[in-house]
Amino acid sequence: MSTQKDRAPAAAGSGLNDDIGEQKRLDLYRSQVRLREAEQRAFDLFLQNLVKGTSHLSLGQEAIASGFAEAMVKGDLSFCTYRGHAHTLARGVPVEKVLGELMQRDNGLMRGKGGSMHLTSEEHGVMGSYAIIGAHLPIACGAAWRAQYKGDKDVSVCFFGDGTTNIGAFHEALNFAVVWKLPVVFVCENNLYMEYTPIGDVTAVEHPAADRASAYGLERIIIDGNDADVVYRTAQKAFAKARAGEGPSLIEAMTYRHSGHSRADPAKYRPEGELEKWKERDPIKIYRERLKQFGVSDETIDAIHADVMKEVDDATEACKAAPNPPLDILTTDVYADGGWAWRN
């Protein structure tokens, strides 16, 4: 069994023209900052009672969403979970559309019909956020089957948490994807907790995804999910394999969520000091250091932050001013004819 444990490049500081390059590094940084600020704003709006329903934040996990999204090209498809704000934003969906949906306004991505857990933007390749654990792994297989059948070169990328590895659909999908040699990439974001329970307490193996890989003839891949460069390189490799017709990959990215499972969870079950330890490995902090090692100026970095804050601030104001959804959308789009008629 081979183990791939990518680390930050040893050549850090050696110049701007390594395999990733300055422009992509700036994009990776901008993306992570954008996810962070948008979700931080979502949390602030929740405290003001302007974000309704539930919400599950990815604060601290941004490098995975940004690293994969930056490695995708137009046409590649993302399948996300209820913790899907970051993955949706990372594919280029405007902050206003996401905040609008969280605030259940008419300017939201689905005009309030889906909510935080079901963000979908097919024009950006975001093929849905799935709130029934495991459901989207087989669905991603189906999208990959279409690509295989039609000779399309897109890759289906399916993100899920560590808890998902213990549900049947995970195992059905992995076997299915390998047997059919599908161009699908499964990404387990291991943030160490299945909702409120340490994943190790409820899982037979140490690495909930990677330690199952050999059961399906897949490589055991565990990466540092807080280093966007590592994530980006891993994604590129898995996508190349998929596009070459060489089948699926299963990647376990180690990370940590800075907040609780959902907005209702203060995360008091975490041992003292754990959060602080992981905040030292905050992906944005790591990446800012990286940029500076590569000689990127503070002015350039600050300008990225200013741009992002403007988008988030403008989005917030637009959402606050947006009307509620009109009642006439209640009965639209139940069926493909646009309506809800079930009888004549």
């Binding site: 849905g128 087989p138 297989c141 189906g142 999208a143 279409r146 690509a147 659909a169 059905e172 299915f176």
Partner: peptide
């Protein structure tokens, strides 16, 4: 064999794959 395919005994995979294929054009 590309259009008529045997599957494992995996009913979730069968219906999930059908949905993913349907969503994207088949």
């Amino acid at each position: 064999p590309l259009r008529v395919r045997d599957t494992p005994i995996s009913e979730q995979a069968i219906l999930g794959a059908a949905m993913g294929a349907a969503m994207t054009g088949l």
